[in-house]
Design a protein around this nucleic acid. Structure first.
Ligand SMILES: [Mn+2]
Ligand SMILES: [Mn+2]
Ligand SMILES: [Zn+2]
Ligand SMILES: [Zn+2]
Lengths: 146, 146
DNA sequence: TCGCAAATGAGAACGATTATCATTCGCACT
DNA sequence: AGTGCGAATGATAATCGTTCTCATTTGCGA
């Protein structure tokens, strides 16, 4: 299915800015992007889109179920294509590298913890902040590595 | 040990604003508070403290290990007294009620997920967002409870 | 009690995000 | 293909949480 159809299925009319943002995510350039990153990447390829529109489109895509929003440490929202299946994240504090993981037992135990206390889960977020193993990550070259 | 000593142990000189903020947390009025909440609660008892000072003191207490900071959904940081032991949170999306839980297996599996991928964990946060069971919670009275 | 570095508080500044509103665009209907 | 109109866009102002600035005040050791 092509992009204009994607948008129509989501109840959004197929406009140029929306197509550009969707293409960027589908290009696979980067899985997790903030509004600012989307904005700058589009600018850099000459696909100018207003920053306000980027914010609007990201929120619309989130509501339409095309994108998922994450609130990692750092105060800015990051988005990724909705893959249909839930997963959690490990974020490198040094270089921003993100890896995804899924643990069925963790998920089950969360359900359990909530149910035991009479809560009905709407959403949850598990983020691990760490130093990654990439050889080019700044955490490798710091004089003191504590 | 009294409050002035608490502060000295933490390497902070014992000033009026710091004592007021610490007292508020130790009063047990509320375990989890944002800067704005601390500020307003102090105002309401005549213990005026500048908002900038509240922010500064909260950050200092965090660095000193007296308080722990959490970034729940909603964009504002919330703080609580450091109890020495880690725990996670279930937050009611309707009334803000927070309950705490700890699951050793979840913790172990997080360690595992990170280690398998070569990450060294620095920090992590698990928050469950839900509807709570309190009878006075607004999620009970909504016409459609979906 | 003095002296002074450290702390405070009022308000400006900031970064991320949202609201406003005049202009432009997509699209259903000729 | 041409029109009309409501929806979408984009420049900019506004908002929100938080941090910074700097003149004034305070804690505390000598
Ligand atoms: Mn992801
Ligand atoms: Mn807690
Ligand atoms: Zn890294
Ligand atoms: Zn509730």
């Amino acid at each position: 299915m092509n992009q204009p159809e994607h948008l129509k299925n989501a109840g959004l009319k197929s406009t140029l800015p929306r197509l550009k943002v969707l293409s960027l995510f589908e290009s696979g350039q980067a899985r997790h992007m903030s509004a600012e990153e989307v904005y700058k990447l589009l600018l850099s390829t000459g696909d100018d889109v207003g920053l306000a529109t980027v914010y609007r489109v990201l929120t619309q895509f989130e509501q339409a179920g095309l994108l998922v929003r994450h609130n990692f440490e750092g105060g800015k929202s990051v988005f990724e294509l909705d893959q249909g299946t839930h997963h959690d994240h490990i974020v490198c504090l040094q270089c921003g590298h993100v890896e995804e993981f899924f643990d069925a037992d963790i998920e089950a135990r969360q359900e359990n913890a909530a149910a035991e206390r009479g809560f009905t889960i709407r959403d949850h977020s598990l983020s691990i902040y760490a130093d990654c193993a990439k050889t080019d990550c700044p955490n490798k070259t710091r004089s003191e590595n504590r």
